[in-house]
Design a protein around this nucleic acid. Structure first.
Length: 180
DNA sequence: GTACAGATTGAG
DNA sequence: TCAATCTGTACT
């Protein structure tokens, strides 16, 4: 995936990420999984975003980077969440990767499990997905490309009810329906 | 320096 | 339904 892919509007990127393969290289091993669930977070205007009202903290500054950087963050002291910054530099927008469909039989069915499975941690903070040698995105192989035609389902986002009904009801969570 | 809440998960 | 568990942020 090139830089241009990530600098498109966030909601568009969130949808297009579905069906892409997330590849993680650990030593000689390569782990990969199809992205089947994402959520969009739209910066200052989005009350559920860490960058609500343009807040900048050491924690969320990766969100300000140009699209294609990893914004990884520890929630509840136990679970990592992997986000990809989107848009141009200075845009406080990102896409949360919630779930992968792994071809190894295991399913990373939530943000925390996903990162545990891929062994992602703080060392990936700010990683550039267009340059990194240990994590990047790939287009589906030709014989798997038909999966991209699968239905995309939009639902409300998860775990952000605190942001109020106005934001929590926004359908910015995107799922890829499996088509076995 | 101290208090507190959270983009989750798994058990009860 | 609720606790585990810890970092960043907003207080004093």
């Amino acid at each position: 995936m090139t830089r241009g892919f990530y600098t498109k509007p966030t909601l568009e990127v969130a949808k297009k990420l579905l069906g892409k393969y997330l590849v993680r290289k650990i030593g000689k091993k390569k782990l990969s999984g199809k992205i089947i669930e994402t959520e969009a977070y739209l910066g200052p205007q989005d009350k559920a975003s860490h960058a609500y009202q343009g807040k900048v903290t050491p924690r969320n500054q990766a969100e300000y980077l140009i699209g294609g950087h990893v914004y990884i963050y520890l929630v509840y002291g136990m679970y990592w969440q992997m986000n990809i910054s989107t848009g141009k530099a200075g845009r406080l927008e990102c896409v949360l990767i919630r779930a992968l469909d792994s071809n190894l039989g295991k399913i990373a069915s939530g943000p925390g499990k996903l990162c545990r499975y891929l062994k992602l941690d703080k060392s990936f903070y700010g990683e550039d997905l267009t340059k990194s040698k240990r994590i990047w995105l790939e287009d589906p192989a030709p014989e798997q490309a038909r999966c991209r035609a699968s239905r995309v389902i939009a639902t409300k986002r998860i775990g952000i009810d605190y942001a109020g009904i106005y934001w929590s009801k926004r359908k910015w969570r995107f799922l890829l329906k499996r088509d076995f």
